[in-house]
Nucleic acid binder design. Structure first.
Lengths: 307, 307
DNA sequence: GCCGATCTCTGACTAACATCAGAGAAATGG
DNA sequence: CCATTTCTCTGATGTTAGTCAGAGATCGGC
């Protein structure tokens, strides 16, 4: 990666913080500290549980609690305990709070308009296009990949979506019971490993590795959420799985797949996988792939930003 | 401007502040509050006058003073009074300060790298391209156009650069004395007006309007700095001048120009100006243009972001 | 029904940032 | 030379943000 690239990123950061930052701090404020404004915004018209807010805004529980009481004292929010669980509390906007949030919204819109107003029609189109591109790619670089417990909530949610998608796309549906097992125990060290890709805390993809006798590892459960496709998540999951395979001492990685999963097949080919003869008799498998791992550690930093 | 555009800008803002903002606040800190780090950075290897720092960082004089003393106590900067004027003081980095600034620089680079690392080669190229585009267009939308006193420092500086450019580009050079007068008095209300385009406070272009008898106004001194070309500054200056012309009661705007100023000629044509017969005998003029102003107020908001 | 985990508060602090008024030294312009 | 302006510093004071430890209520699983 050359210096020019890094300089470009830094220049971009400076320009953008000047424009966007000046914004969030100063303008949006209407007699209200930035933190409270963000909070008000994040609560939304539906209300929210405060533990959820804490996670989303990364706030200390004490701090959040105090902010909420201050908002409550001004009658912009109302606190109530959740029906289902008396430990958790919900916040709702009062009529006054809703009005104030709408005002924040208006200001935010006016500000966004300020980006576009001075530009010509053509420039506007170019700006919007480039913004979408930057946004998408920043999201891509925000995706973090790391190991997870296959029994965890997020992991099970991913697997459920994965199976649902297979069921929808396969000609005759998909029944997990008919496939060779890869249950929680098999995807946990030392038998294997399961990785989750997260974007802002939300799980957006998964992939697992199952150890086989004889320095062979098998990739299972590769899945990327629709909203996160095109961000290179699949490629990074594979690279991370290969790194795990190396760590487990494997020299070859195998996988099987179904012919309707064309994007996946394309991804495997691009990642250096070659078609081999069937190594199992999975009912849903049409293609079998293998890749010999080189000794190099390339791809081992694919887990996330090294910063 | 449609809602989708505004939503795109707002989404972009959110994504970018999350990524860029998290950055500046947390990571860059090395035991040092953000404000001090920015200050350290801004001082630069050459040192700086503190009144200049105050202006650049928009800091309260008391606050800046305290920050400097704190840095001085840690021996990262040294304060000295300026030679020329004993009221103003200069700051310099000590050896330790220089080292610390270099460290900040390294961190900043590492951070920028964190944007790029997780991406594939192709994605990186796309991100850098889109960043450059966004940066350029945000700069474009940061340009503000407003009236100025033609005798002011900035105005004179622009005119000097304008004349220097004409002198360099015209076949036989350019001598302001040979041209019809358009001195300060003529470009000031009520005889006329002069507009300056500013980007972050720096003057990057100018344009003036001179009133003539009979509802005619003449555009003079149109100039855009090299570094600011391609941002649409010329177009906006013209629109703003036309708005001024309307305000002065003119229904037609005229101008003359030299054949070597091809970008300007192109700009005039695009802005709706049509070639007319010579209306003066300027020695440097090869083309004469005119535009009839419609009654509409279109372009009147071209002065700057309406936010 | 009990244990450990979860969730929300409160209290007690600290750090960072910001604002305002005014004092003292030095330059500038008549 | 004097009044005014410019520039820096100090003191007093306030607001916003962020941290930590622990109390009290409630839930879920055994």
């Amino acid at each position: 990666m050359d210096d020019a690239a890094i300089r470009q990123v830094r220049r971009f950061n400076r320009t953008v913080t000047e424009r966007v930052g000046a914004l969030s701090g100063r303008y949006l404020g209407r007699q209200r500290p930035l933190g409270e404004a963000r909070l008000l915004w994040e609560i939304g018209p539906e209300g929210a549980e405060i533990r959820e807010l804490r996670a989303r805004l990364l706030l200390d529980s004490g701090q959040l609690s105090r902010m909420l009481r201050s908002l409550e004292a001004e009658a912009v929010v109302r606190l109530e305990t959740a029906r289902a669980d008396a430990r958790v509390r919900r916040v709702r906007l009062t009529r006054k709070g809703t009005a104030e949030r709408a005002e924040l919204d208006r200001r935010s819109n006016r500000l966004a308009r300020g980006f576009l107003d001075p530009l010509s029609e053509r420039q506007r189109e170019r700006l919007l296009g480039a913004m979408a591109e930057v946004e998408g790619l920043l999201n891509a670089s925000l995706v973090e990949i790391g190991p997870c417990d296959p029994a965890s909530r997020d992991a099970r949610a991913c697997l459920a979506q994965y199976f649902a998608e297979l069921d929808a796309r396969f000609e005759n549906g998909f029944d997990p019971a008919k496939t060779t097992t890869a249950d929680a125990a098999e995807l946990k060290p030392p038998a294997g490993v399961m990785l989750l890709a997260r974007l802002r805390g939300r799980a957006v993809g998964c992939g697992a590795l199952k150890r086989h006798p004889g320095r062979v590892a098998e990739i299972k459960r590769m899945w990327v959420a629709h909203g996160a496709r095109g961000l290179g998540v699949g490629r990074r999951l594979i690279q991370a799985l290969e790194a795990e395979a190396r760590a487990l001492g494997a020299t070859r990685v195998r996988l099987d797949t179904n012919r309707v999963l064309t994007e996946a097949i394309e991804l495997y080919r691009r990642s250096g996988y070659r078609e081999i003869a069937p190594y199992n008799d999975q009912p849903y498998a049409h293609f079998w792939f293998e890749k010999r791992l080189s000794a190099s550690r390339s791809g081992s930093r694919a887990r996330g930003p090294s910063a």
